[in-house]
Computed example of a mutant assay.
Amino acid sequence: MGKFDRYLLQQLLMLFGFFCLLLTLIFWVNRAVTLLDWLMGDGQSVATFFRLSLLSLPGVIVNLLPIAGFIAAVYATNRLSSESELVVVQAAGYSPYRMARPVIIYGLIVTAMVAMLAHVLEPLANREQEVRRVEISRDVTARLLTEGTFVHPVSGVTFYVREITPAGELIDVYLSNSRNADQRQSFTARRALIVEENNEPLLLMFDGAAQVYNLETKALAITRFESFAYGLGDWLQPADTPRWRTRTLTTAQLISRPADVLAQSQATPQEMVTEIHSRNNRAFMGLAASLLGFSALLVGGFSRFGLWRQIFLGVVIMVAIKSLDNSVAAMVERTPAKWPLLYLVNVIGVAASFGLLWLAAHPHLDLGRARRARAARMEAS
C-alpha cells in the first residue's frame, strides 16, 4: 500500500469514527426518549433504562454505519479537493480507478463492521432485550409501586400509592378502572398489600371504599369495606417465556440449527433464508455507500467554487439507493421468495460508482464542461 493509500485511508477512518459517533448519539437519544417514557410509565428504575438503551445500540449502529461511511467519504474527498491534493495526485499519474483503491479498502472495513453487527451482535442484543422485556412484564411490583406517582399499567387503569413502608405495606392507595364500557370503578384504601394466590396477583385493601358509577343510569354506588381483595390478573398477566425468533438468533445459529429454529420460532424456511440474506445486504451497503461518496466528487474535476454540485449529485444518488433499498426490503418481507432482489440495490450502487469513476477518467465526455468552454470562447471573441 502506497503513501497516498495509507494517507487517504487514515483520513477516511478518522472521519468515519467521528460521524459514526455523532449520528449514533443523535439517533440513540431519539430512541431513548421513547424507551424512557415506556419504562417510567411502568415504574422501572434508571438502571433498567440504561441497560435496555445500551442493548438497543447495535440495532441503531448497524443502520447508521453505511450512512456514516458515505458522509466520511464525501467529507474527506471534498477536503482533499479544496486543498488541491487531488489535483497533485492526478498530476502524478493516478487515475480515478487507482485513487479509489484505498476507498475500496475502507468500504470493505465498513462492510466487515456492519456484518459483525448484523450477523452476531444485533441478534444477541435483540435476544437479551426480549428477555429483559419479559422480566419487566412479570415484575408486578415495579409496574405498580412508585411512590407519589400516578401510573398506568394498561390503558384505562390508573394506580396511585402515597407511601410504601419498608415492610412492603402500601399507604393511601387509589385504583381506578375505566376499561368497562358500562361502568367506572374507583377504589381508595388507607392500607393495602400485593400478594399472590394461585399464581395470580391480588391487591388486598383495608379500611377503604369502592365507588361504582353506572354510565347508563348515571347512578353512583359507594361501598365502604374493612378489607377487600381485587384481582389484578386480568391486566397484569405475566408474559410467556420469550420464544425464538429469527431476528434474535445469530446467523451461525440459523445455519447450524435450522430444524430447532423452525420448530421454536414458527418461521418458514424461506423467511429464515431471507433473514440471512437481508443481513448480508446491509453489510454490502457499507461498500456501495463509501465508494459512491468518493466517486461522485471526482466528476467534473477541480473547481475554485467548490464541489457542491458533485456533493448534491452524490446525496441524490444515495437517497435514491436507500429509498430503493427500503422498498425492496418491504417487498421481500411480504414475499420472501424474492430475496435475490435484495442484492440488486447494492449492485446498482456499485455500478453507479464505477460509472462515475469512468466519467471522471474521461473528462472529454463532460458535456457540461464542453458547453462552458464554447460559451467562454464565444465571449472572448
Score class of each variant (00 low, 15 high):
residue 315 V to F: 11
residue 192 A to F: 07
residue 50 F to E: 02
residue 18 F to S: 12
residue 126 N to A: 14
residue 21 L to P: 03
residue 348 I to Y: 11
residue 230 Y to L: 05
residue 44 Q to A: 07
residue 164 I to V: 10
residue 239 A to V: 00
residue 206 F to Q: 10
residue 249 L to F: 02
residue 230 Y to T: 04
residue 114 V to E: 01
residue 26 I to C: 09
residue 216 E to P: 01
residue 199 N to H: 14
residue 340 P to Q: 09
residue 173 V to S: 00
residue 301 G to T: 08
residue 217 T to Q: 15
residue 43 G to W: 00
residue 381 S to F: 10
residue 347 V to I: 09
residue 273 V to W: 14
residue 297 L to V: 02
residue 205 M to S: 00
residue 204 L to F: 13
residue 350 V to F: 13
residue 365 L to Q: 15
residue 86 L to Y: 12
residue 160 Y to V: 00
residue 233 G to S: 06
residue 91 A to N: 15
residue 162 R to F: 03
residue 120 V to P: 10
residue 48 T to P: 02
residue 371 R to L: 12
residue 38 W to S: 03
residue 263 A to I: 08
residue 39 L to D: 03
residue 210 A to M: 00
residue 137 S to K: 05
residue 114 V to W: 07
residue 167 A to G: 08
residue 308 W to P: 05
residue 351 A to R: 15
residue 103 V to M: 12
residue 250 T to N: 14
residue 175 L to Q: 00
residue 42 D to E: 04
residue 54 L to Y: 13
residue 20 C to I: 13
residue 9 L to V: 12
residue 8 L to F: 08
residue 42 D to L: 00
residue 46 V to R: 01
residue 190 R to G: 07
residue 26 I to L: 15
residue 275 E to G: 10
residue 67 I to C: 14
residue 150 F to C: 02
residue 330 A to K: 14
residue 120 V to R: 09
residue 100 A to I: 13
residue 237 Q to L: 09
residue 274 T to C: 10
residue 146 T to A: 10
residue 279 R to E: 11
residue 59 G to S: 06
residue 13 L to C: 11
residue 247 R to E: 13
residue 330 A to C: 09
residue 49 F to I: 03
residue 295 S to F: 14
residue 157 V to Y: 00
residue 55 L to I: 03
residue 230 Y to P: 06
residue 280 N to C: 12
residue 176 S to R: 10
residue 185 Q to I: 01
residue 49 F to Y: 02
residue 202 L to P: 03
residue 181 A to K: 12
residue 232 L to K: 06
residue 24 T to N: 06
residue 144 L to Y: 02
residue 344 L to H: 09
residue 290 S to E: 01
residue 21 L to K: 07
residue 338 K to T: 11
residue 63 N to V: 10
residue 281 N to Y: 05
residue 258 P to K: 02
residue 242 P to K: 09
residue 173 V to P: 00
residue 376 A to F: 14
residue 291 L to G: 06
residue 254 L to N: 00
residue 108 L to A: 01
residue 264 Q to W: 13
residue 306 G to M: 11
residue 293 G to M: 06
residue 157 V to N: 00
residue 22 L to M: 14
residue 23 L to R: 11
residue 208 G to S: 05
residue 74 V to E: 09
residue 180 N to K: 08
residue 116 M to V: 06
residue 144 L to E: 00
residue 206 F to C: 02
residue 243 R to E: 04
residue 240 D to Q: 00
residue 325 D to N: 14
residue 342 L to N: 10
residue 131 V to T: 06
residue 280 N to V: 14
